[in-house]
Structure formats: C-alpha cells, structure tokens
Amino acid sequence: MAISHGEFLRSLQPMKRDYRIRVEDQGRRFLITRDGLDMEILLAEEQIIRMGALSMPRTQVDFIFHGASPQQVSDFFSRFELSFRRGGG
C-alpha cells in the first residue's frame, strides 16, 4: 500500500467501532477480532518509492485470517476499504 505506518494506524482507528483491535510489535502487528473473526495484519518495514521529484511511502501489508467465514472476510474488507478511502478528484 502507498501508506506510512502512521497513516495506516490513523486510518485503522474508525474500525474500532466495529472490531476489537490490539496493537503489538510497536504498531507493526494488529490482532483483530469480532464475532468469530480472528485475524492479524502485519506491516513490513516502511519504504520510500521515488519517481523523479515525487516520493511516497510504501508498506507491504499482509492479512492473515484464522477460521473466518467468507462472509466475515468480505465484511471486513468492505469496512477496511471505507476506512482507508482517501479523497481524490
């Protein structure tokens, strides 16, 4: 994702209304639960991509689901996408 670790954490905050989120490993691992959904999000080391004068953050994000139903996964990503949507024009 084109996002810094700090931006990721800020974007994840609204999801606390619907999910229990525990932050570990200094903000690089997130344990998320809700009604049988058990998952974790792992953030790789933050990198910077440079394209001429433009530079932007890049973070590999891994989603690991443990025993979640397909509907729970779909519901999670629908909510995740809303939280991480950025304005564009």
Score class of each variant (00 low, 15 high):
residue 1 M to K: 00
residue 2 A to S: 10
residue 4 S to R: 07
residue 5 H to K: 15
residue 5 H to E: 14
residue 5 H to A: 11
residue 6 G to P: 04
residue 6 G to H: 11
residue 6 G to S: 13
residue 7 E to K: 14
residue 8 F to L: 04
residue 8 F to S: 05
residue 8 F to C: 03
residue 8 F to T: 03
residue 9 L to M: 06
residue 10 R to F: 12
residue 10 R to V: 06
residue 10 R to G: 07
residue 11 S to I: 01
residue 11 S to L: 09
residue 12 L to K: 06
residue 12 L to S: 05
residue 14 P to M: 06
residue 15 M to W: 00
residue 15 M to N: 03
residue 15 M to K: 02
residue 16 K to T: 01
residue 17 R to W: 00
residue 17 R to D: 11
residue 17 R to G: 02
residue 18 D to A: 06
residue 19 Y to R: 01
residue 20 R to E: 15
residue 21 I to Q: 13
residue 21 I to M: 09
residue 22 R to Y: 13
residue 23 V to A: 12
residue 23 V to K: 12
residue 23 V to H: 12
residue 24 E to N: 12
residue 25 D to P: 09
residue 25 D to L: 07
residue 26 Q to P: 06
residue 26 Q to Y: 14
residue 27 G to E: 11
residue 28 R to V: 10
residue 29 R to V: 14
residue 31 L to N: 13
residue 32 I to K: 05
residue 32 I to F: 07
residue 32 I to N: 08
residue 33 T to K: 00
residue 33 T to C: 06
residue 34 R to Y: 01
residue 35 D to N: 09
residue 35 D to Q: 10
residue 35 D to K: 04
residue 36 G to F: 04
residue 36 G to E: 08
residue 37 L to T: 10
residue 40 E to S: 10
residue 41 I to P: 14
residue 41 I to W: 11
residue 41 I to G: 12
residue 44 A to F: 11
residue 45 E to Y: 04
residue 46 E to Q: 15
residue 46 E to F: 11
residue 46 E to G: 13
residue 47 Q to K: 14
residue 48 I to H: 11
residue 49 I to L: 13
residue 49 I to H: 13
residue 49 I to Q: 12
residue 49 I to F: 10
residue 50 R to I: 08
residue 51 M to V: 02
residue 52 G to I: 06
residue 53 A to F: 13
residue 54 L to D: 13
residue 55 S to E: 12
residue 56 M to Q: 08
residue 57 P to K: 07
residue 57 P to R: 10
residue 58 R to H: 12
residue 59 T to W: 07
residue 60 Q to W: 09
residue 61 V to Q: 03
residue 61 V to I: 15
residue 62 D to S: 14
residue 62 D to V: 10
residue 63 F to L: 09
residue 64 I to T: 14
residue 65 F to R: 12
residue 65 F to S: 14
residue 66 H to A: 10
residue 69 S to T: 15
residue 69 S to D: 06
residue 69 S to R: 10
residue 70 P to W: 05
residue 70 P to I: 04
residue 71 Q to L: 02
residue 74 S to W: 03
residue 74 S to E: 00
residue 76 F to S: 09
residue 76 F to N: 08
residue 76 F to G: 06
residue 76 F to Q: 03
residue 78 S to T: 05
residue 78 S to N: 04
residue 78 S to Q: 05
residue 79 R to F: 02
residue 79 R to V: 05
residue 81 E to K: 05
residue 81 E to P: 00
residue 81 E to T: 03
residue 81 E to S: 08
residue 81 E to I: 00
residue 81 E to R: 05
residue 81 E to Q: 02
residue 81 E to L: 01
residue 82 L to M: 02
residue 82 L to W: 01
residue 82 L to N: 02
residue 83 S to F: 00
residue 84 F to A: 01
residue 84 F to C: 05
residue 84 F to Q: 01
residue 85 R to P: 02
residue 85 R to I: 00
residue 85 R to E: 00
residue 85 R to C: 06
residue 86 R to Y: 02
residue 87 G to A: 03
residue 87 G to H: 04
residue 88 G to A: 04
residue 88 G to N: 07
residue 89 G to Q: 00
